[in-house]
Design a protein around this nucleic acid. Structure first.
Lengths: 349, 349
DNA sequence: GTGAAAGCGCTAACAC
DNA sequence: GTGTTAGCGCTTTCAC
């Protein structure tokens, strides 16, 4: 009777299980945590009680006493961009394997939301944070967090912050160099204008590929999103940037997009104007999301090991958790590779 | 000295703040919770101490004693489908307004993951769960959860479970009726084959529109995903289903897709084969995601109030939380509306 | 191998 | 208006 009342009321606790199994609560706790020093017989007894009562351990209480919630916070800026969901899948695969769970939030590129979500995570005592898409704006925030719990950033440029990076500069160089080798000289770059490492590096690659081939750079071919379009998702941003480009610089023969989501937007804009890809305009993306090989024509792009980036990020934060304050700062650099498909071709004279 | 040691070590607690401000811990707690019965002077003192110490309240401890984590679990099946992210945005908007936060997980349509994530949420003592895309497979799981915490489903058909639905049947009817009025008689339906309410209802609309217009239904025009393609995202699924359709039934002149993500996939498949939309094939989607008005040609679709569905779901779960066991089951029905764009046109004789 | 007891950080009832 | 105190459900010494 008491048990029934309990199950409808405040929830089954370790005490209920202990009473039912005729043992102490410490024994129940030991069984649940797979602790060795419990006899087979008592273990069975306890497990039976646990099942019969449908006992659900209270992670709040456990987290409180263990000083660890077994949770990692994920701060992401745009869930509608497959880049993030792919990397997140990699993170999840490692976390769940190690008994951790993820606390995911989408900041929609809003700094205010970023602060709010991170505060929430700190209050919930996440054991660590993986943050995406940080830029110089975030430096104080990041440092504040770093003093409290481990933090790992994906594609960032902070002193003293561990991060997972890719060879963005090389990737961008190869993409633009490839376009130039195809005969293109007027190549636009559709890119965000914030001070993120990946942005800087891809810009660097864009510039050095021009330089290496003796092609002058026309700064007006570098298109940034308007404030308005950047608040929406990347594809819409790409669509707007491409339209701006086509209006102002019809002479351009190739587009290098900061990422595939933007490239897809550029393709849509080209389609709409009847510009044939790759006959009238070449387009190259970055990331190699699934969509890239699905659109018509299939997109030439710089592949990043998305899932692997996530796995590495998760492994890194777990490592920092293990090592504590002694852990040294680490930057993991993963390779990119040019994937040539149908959205690029030799420029006709 | 003690305070410094504390701030580097185990974290600042309410005791540290109390000591620094020369008050008791209850007073600190009162200040933090905006409790009225604190004098202006002490409040100031405490707030100063809180700021100076960088105190971060411990949500674990608070949740433990309050028996509420102020968190709602969101169980979603495919974050890469904008349908979900749009609805989630609506949910978030209400939750954050009411001081709640969301615990988000992506099951990738895997039942095993669904069980695991829900168990985690239960352990973390979320106050309620909003679940998407449930089907008959889930009935036991849902009922088990329902006995523990409030649950609200988006587009579902469970007895005794509150849910947010839309007029799927009417929406589907209007879409197909519109196609028929344009002269189409051979209309395919690309749709999932699981037993979800939305699937059933859109199927019902598809059927009754045929019947109302005296058009016989060809069952082989109803295409389901293969096991293989359904594990991937909806767009890829749509791409595959459309290819299967074009191979087997080139006589079809119009496609009604279960959702826009699938419709986009169908457009890609059509493009690839050189089938012109809407000249060679008409396509209608469902949802009205941003992409729908961005692709070329712009997609005719049945709009759902995505953001609003989320807001309603959040408000409903919060209401159930307030009302407790006395709360009666509620089903909220939101309207759909046909949005005519460029992917449909009068069939040429 | 098992139990008793302390305590994680907080809220809320109860004194004063 | 403020302080004291008893838990919330759990893990973890420390005895035995």
């Amino acid at each position: 009777v008491i048990l029934i009342a309990n199950s409808l009321g405040k929830g089954i606790t370790i005490y209920d299980v202990a009473k039912k199994a005729n043992v102490s609560i410490s024994t129940v706790s030991r069984v649940f945590n797979g602790n060795a020093s419990v006899s087979k017989k008592t273990r069975k007894k306890v497990q039976k009680a646990i099942e019969e009562l449908n006992y659900i351990p209270n992670a709040l209480a456990r987290g409180l006493v263990c000083q660890s919630s077994k949770t990692i916070g994920l701060v992401v800026s745009d869930l509608s961009n497959p880049f993030f969901t792919n990397v997140i899948d990699g993170i999840e695969s490692i976390l769940s394997e190690k008994g951790f769970s993820a606390l995911l939030c989408d900041t929609h590129y809003s700094f205010e939301k970023e602060i709010r979500y991170i505060s929430q995570m700190l209050e919930k005592r996440v054991d660590g944070i993986i943050i995406f898409d940080t830029n110089s704006r975030d430096v104080d925030l990041i440092n504040r967090v770093k003093n409290i719990i481990p933090i790992v950033s994906v594609q960032s440029n902070f002193k003293g912050v561990d991060s997972i990076n890719t060879t963005d500069d090389i990737g961008a160089y190869e993409a633009v160099d490839y376009l130039i080798k195809l005969g293109h000289k007027k190549i636009a770059f559709l890119v965000y204008d914030n001070a993120r490492l990946a942005v800087m590096n891809r810009l660097k690659g864009y510039v050095s590929a021009h330089r290496a081939n003796g092609i002058p750079i026309n700064r007006s071919y570098i298109i940034n999103p308007t404030d308005d379009s950047s608040s929406k998702n990347a594809t819409i941003g790409g669509y707007c940037m491409a339209n701006e480009l086509f209006d102002r610089h019809p002479e351009v023969t190739a587009i290098f997009a900061y990422n595939d989501a933007i490239a897809v937007g550029a393709c849509l804009a080209a389609n709409e104007r009847g510009l044939k890809i790759p006959d009238d305009i070449n387009i190259v993306g970055f990331d190699d999301i699934e969509m890239a090989s699905l659109i018509n024509p299939k997109l030439t792009t710089v592949a990043q090991p998305l899932f692997d980036m996530g796995k590495n990020a998760a492994e890194l934060i777990l490592k920092k958790l293990r090592e504590g304050k002694e852990s040294t700062t680490q930057i993991i650099l993963l390779p990119t590779s040019l994937v040539i498909r149908e959205s690029t071709k030799q420029l006709q004279a």
